[in-house]
Amino acid sequence: MQTNDNRKLARNLSLVLAACILASLAVLLALRFAPRGDGPLQADIYRDGELIASIRLDQVTVSYTLPIEASDGGRNLIEVRPNEIGILSADCPDKLCVRQGFRHDALYPIVCLPHRLVIRLSRETDADGTDAVVR
């Protein structure tokens, strides 16, 4: 009897996992083929959840670097390029933020978890700016 219960629970849990996997794949596919928009690309830099800089990447003509100091003394060196932004170097242990490379679309943010740094990219696609302020 107990094994019967076991089996049923295991089957249901497997279904839950399968549903999670399918839903995730569906979202990833949808994001891949979603319209990207063609409005001006803007990068918002957040440190500890606070907006510290907003840069219109389409207005950048000459690349420049932007050092950011985290609240715990950690450092990230951001490079702003025309229509692109990325992290050049950092003193966090895993350097995942650097490996995330340079971004030129608004799909995913660049994240440096140890330094609580997030670079959010957005494009104003509509006149009502539905995509403009999501915090």
């Binding site: 995730s24 978890l113 915090r135």
Partner: peptide, 23 residues
Amino acid sequence: AALLVTGTLGVLAYLPHLVLAGI
């Protein structure tokens, strides 16, 4: 934890990747 620490909803964009990788 990342959501609370960074205070930025943007990190949720990685939810599908993390669900797949975790499973």
